[in-house]
Write a protein that binds this DNA or RNA. Structure first.
Length: 275
DNA sequence: AGCCAGGGTCTGC
DNA sequence: GCAGACCATGGC
């Protein structure tokens, strides 16, 4: 991978296994938008990024080398060798098919609170509506950064927002779960900093103390919000995959990167026409 | 129109 | 411990 700084852009060349659009729209993040020029806009840690990919390069527009190194490199998990991981997936016929078809998916390192809150909202819900609810959450309670871009509101910001006031989100029964998460985090009863350091099983149990957080939401939070690539969320699609293809469990080539395998399998199975 | 969605809680055996 | 009703909303 070659990194070049040019005016206000960072340009990556010779980057292996990074399909920007696939990574942003495979059901792990809900806040990126595609622009008419084919670029994508998103907000992370209060910074707005515009990112564009063509055949041989990826352009991070209107950013600095400092922000690239401090925020974007880690957000897109660029330190990890996905080419090697995908090569290893070839040991399993189904994973090989999934990665051949959707090569370049990377599991993003999102903010812990944003991931937790987003996947609380995701329960028994569909992706377009999840995105809508989160959009309203940001526009009503986040901070306007520039133009139509808003930050994801911190849990401190939501501290004195009542369940009734959350009604504007149209999140339905999930509003009370958001409120419970906010309360437990603000009171210090649950600490995201501590969860980060915990063994994964303890971290699961800790997250599941929040109302509306069960095994699936906890697993998604660990995978997408805490960088735990061994976390393996099982939703209805992955449940189908497990019963149809892996009745005896996951193949050995997924060891320690079960969550990455899950992302390829999830996206592949969800897009199968004949189910 | 009715089924389903990146589930979880609560109740009743 | 496990099955089943129920939860809000809107995409398809």
């Amino acid at each position: 991978m070659k990194i070049k700084e040019q005016e206000n852009d960072i340009i990556l060349k010779n980057i292996e296994c990074f399909a920007v659009e696939l990574s942003l729209f495979c059901g792990q993040a809900f806040r990126w938008v595609k622009n008419e020029d084919g670029s994508f806009t998103g907000t992370v840690k209060g910074k707005v990024l515009n990112i564009f990919q063509n055949e041989n390069q990826i352009i991070f527009k209107n950013t600095t080398l400092e922000d690239f190194e401090n925020i974007w490199s880690h957000y897109f998990d660029l330190e990890r060798d996905y080419a090697a991981i995908c090569k290893n997936f070839e040991n399993d016929i189904h994973l090989k098919k999934a990665k051949d078809e959707y090569y370049g998916i990377r599991v993003l390192n999102q903010d812990s609170w944003e991931a937790l809150c987003s996947f609380i909202i995701s329960q028994n819900n569909n992706i377009p509506r999840i995105s809508g609810i989160i959009k309203r959450l940001c526009e009503n309670f986040g901070e306007r950064i520039d133009g139509e871009n808003y930050s994801f509101p911190s849990y401190e910001r939501l501290k004195n927002v009542s369940v009734d006031e959350l009604g504007i989100l149209k999140a339905g029964f999930r509003a009370k779960y958001i409120a419970d998460a906010v309360e437990k985090l603000c009171s210090g009863e649950i600490s995201l900093e501590k969860i980060k350091e915990m063994p994964i099983e303890d971290a699961r149990q800790e997250l599941m103390k929040i109302k509306g957080v069960g095994a699936k939401v906890a697993e998604c939070t660990l995978l997408y919000g805490f960088g735990r690539k061994e976390a393996f969320p099982v939703d209805v699609w992955v449940k189908r995959i497990m019963s149809e293809l892996y009745p005896d469990g996951l193949p050995g080539c997924t060891k320690n990167v079960e969550g990455i395998a899950q992302q390829y399998l999830f996206h592949w199975r969800r897009n199968l026409k004949d189910d």
